[in-house]
Design a protein around this nucleic acid. Structure first.
Lengths: 224, 224
DNA sequence: TGAATGGTTCGGTCTAGACCGAACTATGCG
DNA sequence: CGCATAGTTCGGTCTAGACCGAACCATTCA
């Protein structure tokens, strides 16, 4: 019984932290699976599934079933526009609000994003790989160059050949507004960090804490 | 513990029907009082007061105390931009969603908005008054011209002289995306419609149902 | 075919917050 | 002054919906 279009309904849909985080993750433009989105939002898959159904019904995202994966994307440019406007506004107001505490600082430095490395160090890694010619990026996606493969071999990093996940994928995170590396290669590198003891995941959080020497070794390993 | 700016918080603020209606009402650009906003949203003043405090704290609206009135306005262009984007999106989705039933049709034709006439007939009235030179619109607001006053006198319409409400006010409704006339004059005209039996309010709804002859008389009365 | 993996559905708990009645404060009017 | 009006604050109720454990489909792989 209201006058205009139902702006409250749409806003409420965006107004839940879980859903908002998923939408923000989707703003990279890439299609993500339900599981990845759950991870990104820090909630269980069942909860995420429910959220995604509602977002789909509300016309904010579209679902694309491929095999046993459900890929989600922002529905259209209008939806993206709304999110963009919201992010701009939130960023402006946010400066005064969110004082980045010490804990938060670690989170920005290095954290787990699904199964790969995000945060400052993740972005830096991506940049070095790109600059060093280990990755080649074009419209078709990202591929690991022979030079990159050689480096991984030299380090003793083995890529999971069974998984069907793409080798390399770009993943945008909003703390940096920059891309970092996802996909099988991203995963293998993070596993290597654990295996070498360069860093380890902080219990009950998404933070990856590097040791002093680990941090240096990590940087050196991927410098060209 | 989230990555980007807190878009969920802002969206949640807009995502309540009561608050959303108030914000939509404020999109006319005019400053409205707490009471008017409560009426517009169809909620009690205490509830509205709480909502407005939260909107103010969230930086979506600005409060301006003048005497015992509290005037509210959209905070800035960024906020307006977000609302605009949301309204656009909602309007687009809305077409598919809300199948305009017969009931809905009556609502679009003529309904009560606070205490004045909205909907197609409200917009048409406003246009005729404007075109006929009964209203003069400029930056300072809307004023009733002598010509307009004469017509009201001829029809026997008396304006409430006690009320402190503005004589004329523009009121934007989103079913038409056009303005209609609010304020004391708008109210007096609707009262006149009731008094003459041209139309009456449907019980339990905001619809104003005109009779066949009433509709014709109404149109004739305000044609110049 | 069974096992592993990705998603969904169901059922139950729990909390945030919307709502309103009532009492209170502040401003203006006669 | 007292009265009326505009807003706010407080306290209590009540519901929507977020969350997760567990069970259930669907798809792929060995």
């Amino acid at each position: 019984m209201k006058d205009g279009p139902d702006i409250a309904q749409i806003a409420a849909l965006i107004g839940d932290p879980g859903r908002a985080n998923m939408l923000a993750a989707l703003m990279s433009g890439k299609a993500l699976t339900a599981g990845e989105l759950a991870s990104e939002a820090g909630i269980q898959t069942q909860t995420a599934s429910g959220h995604l159904s509602r977002l789909e019904e509300g016309g904010l995202v579209i679902r694309n079933k491929q095999g046993r994966h459900h890929y989600f994307q922002i529905a259209d440019a209008d939806v993206a526009g709304v999110l963009e406007a919201l992010m701009g506004l939130a960023a402006k107001k946010g400066q005064l609000r969110t004082r980045t505490g010490p804990r938060d600082h670690e989170l920005r430095l290095a954290r787990v994003c699904y199964n790969h490395l995000a945060g400052d160090m993740g972005v830096a890694l991506f940049d070095r790989l790109k600059a060093g010619g280990a990755l080649q990026i074009d419209d078709a996606g990202i591929i690991l160059t022979p030079k990159g493969q050689d480096r991984l071999d030299a380090l003793g990093i083995q890529i999971d050949t069974k998984s069907r996940a793409p080798m390399c994928r770009e993943c945008l995170d909003w703390s940096e507004r920059r891309s970092h590396l996802a996909g099988r290669v991203g995963r293998a590198i993070l596993d290597h960090v654990y295996a070498e003891g360069w860093g380890s995941r902080v219990e009950g959080s998404r933070i990856v804490r590097f040791t002093g020497t680990g941090s240096a070794a990590f940087t050196k390993a991927f410098t060209f």
